[in-house]
Design a protein around this nucleic acid. Structure first.
Lengths: 230, 230
DNA sequence: CAAGTAGTATATTGATTACTTGACTATGGC
DNA sequence: GCCATAGTCAAGTAATCAATATACTACTTG
């Protein structure tokens, strides 16, 4: 009967959609996707950063690959995984937006953890873009250097948050600093702002992170900036 | 140690995101979301349409509510569920887009099932919008009447695909017909176009469905159109 | 080619999920 | 107040999932 065929088709159709949903149903896999939105990474470096075993990380990556959300390339001993496309970041961003807007518990968690973050002071992307040409504004990329090299906001200099302390004297007091990192819930930029202010610098964080900036089609660069500090 | 606190925060953060992902990880729940994108519905009507038991459907709806993707209201004996917001449709649409773009198997399934659908002939929303003012173009809503009443493309008339046969003579040959339904993978519009053409009418389907039209901010109406056919 | 490292495959464990069944609650009609 | 209907709840079962441990492959380096 025709309705049977139709049901069968629908089951297969939604079964395909659910493959994507299943890939998004695990916290660790979502964290992996956020890390891969910064730059491609090896299995081992993902495992270390997230705090999972190598085997477990590899399995999660297989799951993501079966949902076609990530691709990989092999280079010598290492297997580098990357997001399969810009839509994949878009997907995880929309998921995040829904969580932000709808989950009361999420709201509470954020308020609790970022009680000291003055959100009103965060710089939106549009504002930074306008003021980026000013020589007074210095954009700081507080992520690990490898992520900076893989891609960063045009004109930003790399100051991984762990190096900030010993590089403070290079960041003179006359300037105004805007720090960014991996995304709105990444704490690197918050820590950097805190440290800079403690040493008398004017500093604010960018509301969003690098992936959001790139997704908005704003200017990005990769490699090392010509005039970068060392 | 500080890193422990940080790990704990991240686990809770991604745990929250994963609540949304988990809700999207089941084919039946995705089908429910698509139906609710058309109009609010009772548990029973969802169960019947999808072919699940009442209890099972109720449980899926609980799962969706815990992820804050749906809301409900009680009216007499009936409990009506609806999408919790426009972002929820946006989410399921992006998920669909990713599946379309990335899953080879999905591609195959669609080609197999819609082998006869001439995609080149489907009308994009922009084109329909432009031509909608012409008295020559008649827009047909082929979904069940209740969904039409809950909201439809401005100016469309309700012709549920099951009623089309007996209402054919009301649809004169001189006009040009554009049929739409629930979305790009809904077959109602295809069936309507097929039937109309078999009876000598000029007919094409809209590429997308009503939820996409509404999400694009294009003109919609609810209730019954003033000049509608009966 | 031996040794070491990065990553994958497989088996096993306990936890979670989907679904069924039957009991239960809430509402409205008679 | 009694019955029927819509929906939820709770318990049980089979299937799936996440994680571990262990064995294995692939590649590099000496």
């Amino acid at each position: 009967m025709a309705t049977d065929t139709h049901r069968q088709f629908k089951d297969r159709l939604y079964g395909q959609f659910a493959r994507i949903g299943k890939a998004l149903s695990n916290p660790h896999r979502l964290e992996i996707l956020e890390l891969l939105a910064q730059s491609e990474r090896t299995v081992d470096s993902l495992a270390t950063e997230i705090g999972l075993s190598l085997a477990n990380t590899s399995q999660h990556l297989q799951a993501l690959r079966q949902a076609a959300l990530v691709d990989s390339r092999k280079d010598g001993l290492f297997v580098y995984y990357r997001l399969a496309g810009a839509e994949v970041f878009e997907l995880s961003r929309v998921l995040r937006t829904v969580a932000e807007g709808r989950l009361a518990e999420f709201e509470r968690l954020i308020r609790e953890h970022f009680s000291d973050r003055v959100d009103a002071e965060a710089v939106p992307m549009t504002e930074l873009l306008k003021r980026a040409r000013s020589k007074q504004v210095v954009i700081l990329d507080t992520r690990p250097a490898s992520e900076y090299i893989a891609g960063h906001i045009a004109g930003a200099i790399s100051v991984p948050v762990d190096d900030l302390q010993r590089r403070l004297q290079q960041l003179t007091k006359g300037k105004e600093y805007v720090a960014y990192c991996r995304g709105p819930y990444c704490v690197y930029a918050d820590r950097a702002v805190e440290m800079l202010r403690a040493h008398g610098r004017r500093a604010r964080r960018l509301t969003d992170g690098f992936p959001e900036w790139r997704a908005a089609g704003l200017p990005v660069t990769n490699g090392v900036e010509p005039g970068a500090l060392k």
